[in-house]
Amino acid sequence: MFLPRTVFAAVVAGIVASPAGAVDFGRPATPEEIKAWDIDVRPDGKGLPNGSGTVVRGKAVYEENCAACHGANGQDGIKDRLAGGQGSLASDKPLKTVGSFWPYATTLFDYIHRAMPYQAPGSLEVDDTYAVAAYILRLNGILPADGKLDKQSLPKIKMPNRDGFVPDPEFSPKISGK
C-alpha cells in the first residue's frame, strides 16, 4: 500500500519534529512482565520450572494436543516427524527427529513450553509440558514406559546425538591471549 505524498510528508515531518529524537512507542516493561517472558531453558537445565510429568500422562496430553499435526506415534503427521530416524543421519536420506538429531532433552521441553501446541502456543501447563516431553522421549526409546521427568532428571538425559554437533571455530568465543 502506498501513502499519498502529503500523508507521507506529514508522517516524516512528525517523526523529524519529535523532541530530541524521542520515540513515543510503548513503555518500559515491568519486572513482572519480564519475568513472565523469561522462560528460556538452557542445555544444563537452568531455567526449568518446578513440576513433573509422566509418560502415561504425556500420551493423553499428546493425543489431545499434538497428534493431529505430528501423527499418532510422532510419525506420519502433517507436520514434523518427532520419532524414529536413529542411525539415519549419515545416510542418503537422513531423518531428523527428536530422537535422531536433537542434542539436548531440555531443548525439547523449552520448545514445547514456548511454541506448542501450534493452535495455542504456550498454553500447556508446566506438568503437561514435562509429560509431553516424556512421551516424545518414550516414542524415541529414550525413556521407559513408566518414565517421569522433572527439573532434576530432564537435564541428565543423554540424547543419542548429543556428541554429533561439532563447534565451529568461526563462531566459538575467542579467549584473549590464545
Rank of each mutant, 00 (worst) to 15 (best):
N73M: 15
D76H: 15
P94D: 04
E63H: 06
P49I: 00
D92W: 00
A68C: 04
E64T: 14
Y111K: 07
K96G: 02
D110S: 13
D80S: 14
G74W: 04
D80E: 14
P94K: 00
L89Q: 07
A68H: 09
D76E: 13
P103R: 12
V61L: 04
P94C: 00
F109R: 02
A72R: 06
K96H: 10
F101E: 06
G85H: 00
R57K: 14
I78S: 15
P103E: 03
A72I: 11
K46L: 06
L89K: 04
Q86L: 07
T106L: 00
R81P: 02
S88L: 03
L108P: 08
A60G: 05
G84Q: 05
V56L: 09
V56E: 12
Y62M: 07
S88C: 05
P49V: 04
S52M: 08
D80G: 09
D80L: 09
A60K: 13
Q75L: 10
H70K: 05
K93L: 05
S88N: 05
T54S: 15
D76Y: 11
Q75F: 03
G87P: 04
Y104G: 03
G58P: 03
R81F: 00
K59I: 07
L108V: 12
P94T: 01
R81A: 12
L48R: 05
N50K: 12
L108R: 02
A83C: 12
G87V: 05
E64P: 08
V61G: 10
K79H: 12
R57S: 10
Y62N: 09
R81E: 11
G77L: 09
T54E: 01
A68V: 15
K79W: 08
R57V: 09
L48Q: 06
T107P: 02
A67E: 12
L82K: 04
V61N: 09
T54D: 02
E64K: 13
K93V: 00
A68Y: 05
A68K: 15
G99M: 01
G71M: 04
Y62I: 02
G53C: 02
T54I: 05
G51I: 02
A67S: 13
A105R: 03
T97A: 08
L95I: 15
R57T: 14
S88D: 04
